[in-house]
Design a protein around this nucleic acid. Structure first.
Lengths: 192, 192
DNA sequence: GTCTATAGCCCGATAGAC
DNA sequence: GTCTATCGGGCTATAGAC
């Protein structure tokens, strides 16, 4: 089944938002990328913000599904956190959702900001629950604040992208991930 | 001494880059913000990229100076890392340098990317040296990779901004910072 | 549903007067 | 050095034919 024009428009907008953000994404560029005509776009969507919202919602849904799958595996809590941190990523491309936090027009609008906020909330909840399980299992120190560690881990990913894009190399991202995992392991209750 | 037009142009561009990035910053907006005329701008600068580079270099220099000052204090290594992580920040505004990593036109151009890359290199060097001192003093575990921990700390800051902007609240940033500090403390060699 | 034509405005830059 | 006038092109959107 060939994707229809509406679907191609959302996909093209998703890609452009990911690369260039809201101000950097023009309807003209969206049309060129999705191979759809001008009239078609304004038939399916009220305008740029409406199309952008649809694209954001798809990116957010895909990301939340990917997060859920990453945490829905067997193993220790550290295995699952490590699996999330080390899962395959196009590091230099960055995060399709987190990218939008740089955009003032998106952040200033509660509707356009909602998919981003919700995606980070979903991630936080998965991390929170997993870390709580790790503490209960004696994997992590029980005096750690679960919400703090969850925020730290989420920040390492988002910030790792920034460091790697600045360097145009994946090493800073990989180092940041290995560093936080080493700290998590080292903080484990000592059994001696 | 009243700042001259050249200086006001750089300052206006700096502010707009910080808020809106490269594509979101137009010469017209720069003129309005800096109170300088059109002809004056093209007298002092060859064009938008030239002016943007000058603004980036100022932001980078200010940031590098601030970093140097933050680490040039007395105390333990953990004190200095903590001082850097907890120094006063306009969290919802984000990082004037890190912001630009989202911009494809900046990242794709080695000249426009250089000030960002160098600023993160300077920060990494300060963190690296401080953590090495902490390991030598027995504050941190000696099996930690110094470069990894330095990248983790830098990533927590940059990613913390993203989380906080998504939530439009400072709490995620503050939690991420407290979390990584807790992990650093917990990883310290146990003396019992 | 999709097309072409067109609108009004802003973009980044140049020209030339003063 | 700074000004105003102007350029060609891209932006977001609407109109109306098919």
């Amino acid at each position: 089944m060939k994707p229809d024009a509406r679907d191609r428009l959302i996909e093209g907008t998703r890609e452009l938002l990911w690369e260039r953000g809201y101000v950097g994404t023009s309807p003209t560029a969206i049309l060129a990328r999705s191979g759809v005509g001008h009239g078609s776009m304004y038939h399916h969507f009220a305008g740029k913000p409406d199309l952008v919202l649809a694209a954001e919602q798809r990116s957010a849904a895909l990301m939340q599904q990917q997060i859920a799958e990453t945490f829905a595996v067997d193993g220790t809590a550290l295995d699952r956190v490590s699996g999330y941190l080390r899962r395959e990523r196009d590091v230099l491309r960055g995060c399709s959702v987190g990218r939008l936090t740089a955009d003032p027009d998106v952040i200033a609008d509660d509707v356009l900001r909602a998919p981003i906020r919700e995606t980070f909330e979903v991630l936080h909840e998965h991390l929170r629950r997993t870390i709580a399980e790790g503490v209960a299992a004696g994997e992590f120190a029980d005096d750690l604040d679960i919400d703090e560690i969850a925020s730290t881990i989420a920040a390492v990913i988002q910030g790792g992208y920034a460091l790697s894009r600045a360097a145009q190399a994946v090493e800073p991202f990989d180092r940041a991930v290995r560093g936080v995992l080493a700290l998590l392991r080292a903080s484990a209750p000592h059994t001696n």
